[in-house]
Simulated assay, not measured.
Amino acid sequence: MPLTSITNLHPSTFLLLGIPGMEAMHSWLSMPFFLVYISALLGNLSILFIIRTDSHLHEPMYFFLCMLSVADLIISTTAMPKILSIFWFHDREIYFEACLLQVFLIHSLCSMASGFILAMAFDRYVAICNPLRHSTILTHRIIKNLGLAIAFRGAVLFSPQPFMLRWLSYCRTNIIPHTYCEFMALIKLACAETRIYRIYSLTAAFLTGGLDFILILCSYTVILYTVFHLPSKAAWLKTLGTCGNHVCVILVAYTPAFFSFLTHRFGHHVAPHIHIFVANIYLLVPPMMNPMIYGIRTKRIRDRFLQVLTSPKF
């Protein structure tokens, strides 16, 4: 299907180019992308199954991990099938409504994933800084309400996006140089003034990922202060070891996210294919890595996983 460059005010479809400048490598890139997706599906489903079936893992940290796994599953499934369709079948066309839905789901669920990581940091803060009250502070009711509040925040903050994009006029092009529909990528196609939309995007990003990251840093500052006032070095190492998994998840989630966010808005000299490739890493790698980090580094999950694999019933 030939690519078109001029569109009407409200196109019925958009065309996703994939990774600009790397079209010749799409078939090769499809294999690692496919493996990442399969790994994310199997890993997160395994985490959900293991925690669901092991009553010893029914603790706040693992409940928040389940919430993160659900968000990661939906994020991956929202983006990856279309990406693989572009790479394998050159199926670039996406309906306008489907594009708007993809924008909302990706941004709101990434916000929710960030919130669940913050909730896990809060759990570590309470467990280390106030261990005697951990079970009374993080009750099942509080955990449920925290999860609902995080989901509500993501849905409310990003629900205006589809309506904003629908109100815009697209008289320049219907070609999106990306592998998936993203708010700022569509804003750049509009022929109207979009300053207010950009300010909204920055504000929503700060109120989710930016604010979450600041609060996580604050919680770990207090955690480190508490740890280094413990009586022995062995106690330091044991306590820090319980936070190691979560720190790895934070690094995996936020490093590509901040790079993608900053280059999208300020990195005008960054090559487009580099930016799009990092944007895909930010969206697809954390859902794969999170279950691996917890599955490999958490003894209780690892032992339960091995028990399931070796059980005659399975």
Rank of each mutant, 00 (worst) to 15 (best):
R133K: 14
R166P: 00
I142R: 14
L118S: 02
Y170K: 04
H107I: 10
I86V: 12
H58L: 12
A98W: 13
L138K: 03
M164G: 04
R141E: 10
Y62C: 10
R133D: 01
V156T: 03
G154R: 04
A121P: 01
R153D: 00
H140M: 04
A71R: 02
A149K: 01
L146G: 02
S85Q: 06
T139G: 07
I137Q: 10
V156C: 06
W167S: 12
T77V: 11
C129T: 13
E97D: 11
L73C: 11
I83N: 10
M61Q: 13
N145C: 08
N145M: 10
F64E: 06
P160G: 08
S108D: 03
A79I: 14
C129E: 04
P160S: 04
P60A: 11
Q102T: 11
N130Y: 09
T78G: 03
R141T: 13
M164C: 05
P160L: 04
H134Q: 12
A98D: 12
L100F: 02
I150W: 01
C110S: 12
A149H: 01
L73I: 13
G147S: 09
G147P: 00
E97W: 13
L109W: 01
A121C: 14
H90R: 15
A98E: 09
H134M: 10
I86C: 04
K82A: 02
Q161G: 00
A151F: 05
L100I: 04
C66Q: 11
I94M: 06
M112I: 15
S76L: 08
C171G: 15
